[in-house]
Design a protein around this nucleic acid. Structure first.
Lengths: 143, 143
DNA sequence: AAACAATAGTTACGCATGTAACTATCTTTG
DNA sequence: CAAAGATAGTTACATGCGTAACTATTGTTT
């Protein structure tokens, strides 16, 4: 039987790394804004697309609809977004960032991009290869 | 302000990929053995090192001690491992796989390695670059 | 050696999450 | 056009997790 070394095992390594990156990244938006990851993703999606329904946010951010629902409610209570009933389909609600929400978004985005750049800089010449490999894995595993 | 596209954002991509790989990998040991990820990690660690304390398992598998404690209890109830009091230090317990636990381990390991090889094969010539990049990131983020 | 600090492991608690059930609305079908 | 099915979103429930508190034991200090 071939041996298995857990610390070298790809699913384990990916999982641990992803957790570490998320943890580090939390310290980008955590201290100033106290956001959870689902809240950050809703903010990022709305910031990027302007207005969306919860359904669309779920699609763009790979989040379960209950997660989206709860994150939306949290951001609404913080007055970072507004909901308004859609006129074509009264089941869905159109979500938009408030001025306050847009301010937070614009404050976080550069820090997020900095964080990403810092990681890519750490990787040096290995960075493009990592991105290409991730893209390939996404193709295989997520499409 | 530079734009941020969530779907291209590294922490998001890593997180989603890690979740997808974990999910796929679950289908390797899930159907036959119905293991959770923490249980799999305890099994893998004990299979690899023979006997360990819960503390050591936590170190080798990056799991919080409560997670280890619960996974150990689950495997014990399934009679896949035994615990015995250490003689040098009666606070700690030495854990070892039972014959049944070793059988399960030996059944899963080849499937796990197959799974890993399948992913690396999908990556083709990109595989070594991915592994090198992961190693580099581990160095930066986890040491 | 007594007192205090540190450590291995367990458990109570609170929080986050997914499943399933539910409401309200829209779409399809007969 | 009425009935059945599909869909957007919310919520009750169960489960899994980390923090902090706890027990039992070991190590350290004086």
């Amino acid at each position: 039987m071939t041996k298995l070394d857990l610390e070298q095992f790809l699913p384990y390594r990916l999982n641990r790394l992803s957790a570490a990156v998320s943890r580090e990244f939390q310290s980008v938006y955590g201290p100033h804004h106290d956001l959870t990851t689902p809240e950050w993703r809703v903010l990022a999606t709305l910031g990027q697309f302007g207005e969306s329904s919860a359904k669309e946010i779920g699609r763009h951010s790979s989040m379960h609809k209950t997660k989206v629902s709860r994150a939306v409610r949290a951001l609404e209570m913080r007055r970072w977004l507004r909901r308004r009933e859609s006129e074509e389909d009264r089941r869905e609600e159109i979500l938009t960032l408030t001025a306050q929400g847009r301010r937070a978004y614009k404050d976080i985005v550069p820090k997020a991009l900095d964080f990403e750049q810092r990681i890519l800089r750490d990787l040096g010449p290995k960075a493009p290869a990592l991105l290409a490999a991730l893209a390939r894995l996404e193709d295989v595993l997520l499409r």
